[in-house]
């Protein structure tokens, strides 16, 4: 099997290596950017401090220093921990992110799996795997705080998977496809009441679904106001209490990379993904294989900024209040949203 990129014929192993590099870049680049831009800098400015300033210009190398620090640390497995599961958990969390990126398109040909028809369905399915990793970590640590954190994470997942799926259904109805590339194209070439100057980005026409999706993402990621699984003032640090060194680093990467992944999914579903409105440019041209990822990253940064802005502003819900919010507010609203979308879809 062979493929071509920018007119260059590539053999199978070349394509495979490129894809491996691509997915590493897709996971680590947004994660690193998020950490530096939001965790180090934006939050520091929000909290009237400078953040890291020593390593590199404006502390830009701080991330590498942190990674170096974590790699040097002793790798501790608690005596009574279930060692196998304890070691497995962080990898499970990180691999989830890799799996999510598989279905996200970054350009007309920049996809890991081309023409993935069940795309969004697959994304929602694999994104839940990370919760298994969290539950494993909580259970195997032999620590009561970890256990409570893990159980909270599981409860949270069940409560927020549903509004997320229901919010996506609205988008799927409007786009008429589960294929994420198709959803991107539907937004780029769509029109709002006949006006197609900027296509039909779904965050305008599906604003309710967008808000619910972002709330669910916040909960899915375990960011404040839904960070009960971590809850550092209650549970020390929840399920990662016992982790150190490389495994802690993996959880850390997993947290920010999945923030990136969900931002990518949300950008694809609601902000038009890698594309610009079809009225502005010819989306099939090869240049969008280069521009696409950049546009995508910009949109991801906007959404990531939103996620982290909320994270560092709001207090935390209590677990039962979170459940109440999900089951009594978000789910009914998203069901109503589906109903209204369906009626309008049929009507127009």
């Amino acid at each position: 099997m062979s493929a071509s990129l920018f007119g260059i014929e590539l053999s199978y192993w070349q394509v495979t290596s490129l894809r491996s590099l691509g997915i590493l870049a897709a996971v680590l680049l947004p994660a690193g950017t998020f950490v530096y831009l939001f965790l180090f800098k934006m939050v520091s400015f929000m909290q009237s401090r400078l953040g890291p300033m020593e390593a590199g210009p404006f502390g830009s190398m701080q991330l590498l220093a942190e990674v170096g620090k974590f790699l040097q640390k002793e790798d501790i497995v608690p005596e009574r921990a279930d060692a196998k599961l304890f070691k497995l958990a962080p990898y499970l969390v990180v691999s989830t992110v890799l799996l999510v990126y598989l279905a996200v398109p970054f350009g007309p040909e920049m996809t890991f799996v081309s023409n993935f028809d069940g795309g969004i369905f697959y994304v929602l399915a694999v994104s839940s795997i990370s919760a298994l990793g969290v539950l494993l970590a909580g259970w195997s640590s032999a620590n009561k705080y970890s256990l409570i954190g893990g159980l909270r994470a599981a409860g949270q997942l069940i409560a927020y998977e549903l509004p997320m799926v229901l919010a996506v259904i609205g988008v799927v109805i409007q786009a008429g496809t589960l294929n994420m590339q198709g959803i991107v194209m539907a937004q780029a070439s769509g029109s709002i009441f006949g006006f197609d100057g900027f296509g039909n980005p779904f965050f305008l026409t599906q604003i309710i679904a967008f808000v619910i999706f972002m709330i669910a993402v916040q909960a899915e990621l375990g960011q404040t106001p839904f960070d009960m699984p971590i809850a550092e003032s209650e549970l020390v640090t929840g399920y990662i209490t016992e982790y150190s060194g490389l495994r802690f680093l993996l959880f850390f990467i997993g947290e920010f990379a999945s923030a990136g992944a969900f931002a990518a999914v949300a950008a694809t579903l609601f902000l038009g993904g890698w594309a610009v409105p079809a009225a502005w440019a010819d989306l099939d041209s090869a240049i969008f294989n280069l521009l696409g990822p950049l546009i995508m990253l910009t949109k991801m940064l906007i959404l990531g900024g939103l996620i982290f802005f909320i994270r560092f502003t709001f207090p935390r819900f209590r677990e039962d209040q979170l459940q109440k919010l999900a089951w009594t507010v978000l789910i009914p609203i998203s069901l109503a949203n589906i109903l209204v979308t369906t009626i309008l879809k049929v009507a127009f």
């Binding site: 009237s48 960070d227 003032s233 709001f314 207090p315």
Partner: peptide, 16 residues
């Protein structure tokens, strides 16, 4: 108190 409820930023303003 805000920090214990989960809002991190308020603590920094308080310290400032």
């Amino acid at each position: 108190m805000a920090l214990h409820i989960g809002a991190i930023s308020a603590a920094f303003y308080a310290f400032r």
